[in-house]
């Protein structure tokens, strides 16, 4: 039993090690939003002529998503950045990890103009934290599954880690003492923050 739990702890840990590194760094960035970690404001504008999906005045969201898919982009359409101009052309925002787009549908020209803001690596690192998928992206669906696996692994590793040290004489007493004291203090602190803080 010990041998198999050690193997699972070890090899699943290796499989999740890249994720845990990103997780740790992104968590630190949330708590310490230093200037160099803030999103870049570099913007690029481009236009593309393409067959536009049918106009759908009743449902801006559906038309936004259809335009997103026609452009082969991924991300969430942003309702509060969506409007239709006097000519009936749709304008909407689209967000995904690392980029923000403002998309202007120009039906008269049969084209779409896109203002693309490239937010940089630190924004991507933050966005990968707990990300469980992005619309219209198979890669990010896979990342979402990776998030599930690694989240469950950490909980599994906590339990197996305790078993692994408890089933070995070396450091057992000291580890139990640290575990007991640290857990009691931590839980007490959490209860204080919840009910008294």
């Amino acid at each position: 039993m010990r041998k198999w739990l050690l193997r699972l702890h070890l090899y699943l840990g290796l499989l999740c090690s890249g994720y845990l590194m990103v997780f740790g760094v992104s968590s630190l960035v949330f708590n310490h939003p230093l200037d160099f970690t803030k999103p870049s404001k570099a913007t690029v504008t481009w236009e593309r002529s393409l067959p536009l999906p049918p106009i759908n005045r009743e449902n801006n969201e559906a038309e936004s998503e259809a335009v997103r898919d026609a452009l082969a982009l991924m991300g969430w359409t942003i309702p509060w950045e969506t409007h239709r101009d006097g000519g009936g052309d749709l304008h909407f925002g689209l967000a995904r990890p690392g980029k923000h787009y403002t998309i202007h549908v120009l039906r008269g020209a049969g084209a779409v103009r896109v203002e693309e803001r490239r937010e940089g690596y630190w924004t991507v690192v933050r966005s990968l934290h707990g990300n469980h998928g992005v619309p219209h992206s198979n890669l990010m669906t896979a990342w979402g599954w990776y998030t599930e696996i690694c989240t469950l692994f950490v909980l599994f590793a906590a339990v197996t880690g305790v078993y692994l040290f408890a089933s070995r004489k070396k450091d057992r007493r000291a580890a139990w003492a640290v575990l007991g004291a640290a857990t009691a203090l931590s839980l007490g602190f959490m209860l204080y923050v919840r009910y008294g803080g």
């Binding site: 909980l155 880690g161 640290a182 959490m190």
Partner: peptide, 8 residues
């Protein structure tokens, strides 16, 4: 073991 409660 020191950070187990917070990590969990």
């Amino acid at each position: 073991v020191g950070l187990l409660a917070f990590v969990v």
